Amino acid sequence: MRRGVIFDIDGTLVDTNYLHVTAWWEGFRRQGRDVLMVDIHGAIGRADRDLIDYLLPDVSDEEAQAISDTHAELYKPRIDEVRPVPGAGELLQALSDRGLLVVVATSAPKDEAERLIGITGGQDAVSALVHSGDVDKSKPHPEPVRQALDKSGLPPNNAIMVGDSVWDALAARAAKVGCVALRSGGIDTGSLLEAGAEAVYKDCRDLLYHVDETPIGRLLQD
């Protein structure tokens, strides 16, 4: 029976969340929209249009496109400056070495997702990638997690989601997959647990150090 771990990217494997926040903030500002950074931060993890609709329910298609274009204009040139979350590549490789499938499910486009995975140094451990082009809906909808299960052949009871946002935890719960959350994206422990995470760790390095004590450890012991 296949067993594996499904990873989010932004805030989970790479330290990008606050770069996204400032780029989105500027996009809203240029359209005359005053959106607090703390609210933008709470929406990170949703796909572009879903994030905009969540924060601005009255937004027009034209305005949303302008906001999204500004975000891309400001964020994409900085991808090469991005650094991995501590322990990210080591965690991916360690889980693969111990016989688990490592899958990534993200709302990022394919080319961006592959660049970010490469930044971790753990790209050789990743057996499947679900990106924005593979799905119609983003987290917290379960479709990205379900697609990750389908691509990898993992049954829900033999998979664990690792993410940094409440949207990751909610998507995992809706897909009937367990979830371990990380605080590396800036979300507090209480919010992550309330959304459905079974356990919360500081970052990938902390999770790797404690992995046998986590829900992932159950997969390694079966």
Rank of each mutant, 00 (worst) to 15 (best):
D34K: 06
R2Q: 13
L51S: 09
N17R: 13
D34L: 02
D8F: 13
G42T: 04
D34V: 00
A23H: 04
D61G: 07
L56S: 11
D50H: 12
V82E: 09
L56P: 14
S68M: 13
S68A: 14
I6A: 08
N17Q: 13
D39V: 15
R29Q: 09
G32R: 00
V14S: 00
D58S: 01
T16V: 07
T12A: 06
D15W: 01
N17D: 12
W25Q: 13
H71Q: 10
D48N: 14
D58K: 02
G27E: 05
A72H: 14
E63R: 04
M37P: 10
D15P: 13
G45P: 08
K76L: 14
V85I: 11
I9W: 02
T12G: 06
T12L: 00
L56V: 02
L74A: 05
T16H: 03
D8S: 07
W25G: 08
R3V: 00
D39R: 13
F28M: 07
P57A: 01
R30Q: 10
R78N: 09
D58F: 01
P84G: 06
R2N: 12
R49G: 10
D69K: 07
I79E: 06
V35I: 14
P77I: 12
L55W: 10
V21T: 13
A43F: 05
Y54C: 04
S60G: 08
H71N: 08
G11I: 05
F28P: 01
L36V: 15
A23M: 11
I67E: 01
L19H: 14
A66T: 05
L51N: 01
V38H: 15
F28C: 03
D61L: 10
L55A: 03
E63S: 00
R49V: 09
N17L: 02
H20D: 05
V85Y: 00
E73Q: 14
R3Y: 06
V38N: 13
H71S: 10
L36D: 04
I67D: 07
P84F: 01
D34C: 04
Y75L: 13
W25Y: 15
E62W: 07
A66F: 08
Y18E: 15
W24H: 04
L55V: 06
E26T: 07
H71K: 14
R29T: 02
R29V: 03
D53Y: 12
L55E: 08
Y75H: 02
I6E: 05
I6Y: 03
I67T: 10
A43I: 01
D15S: 09
E81K: 15
Y54K: 05
D50W: 12
S60M: 03
L55F: 12
Q65L: 11
D34H: 06
I44Q: 12
P77G: 01
D15V: 00
I44S: 10
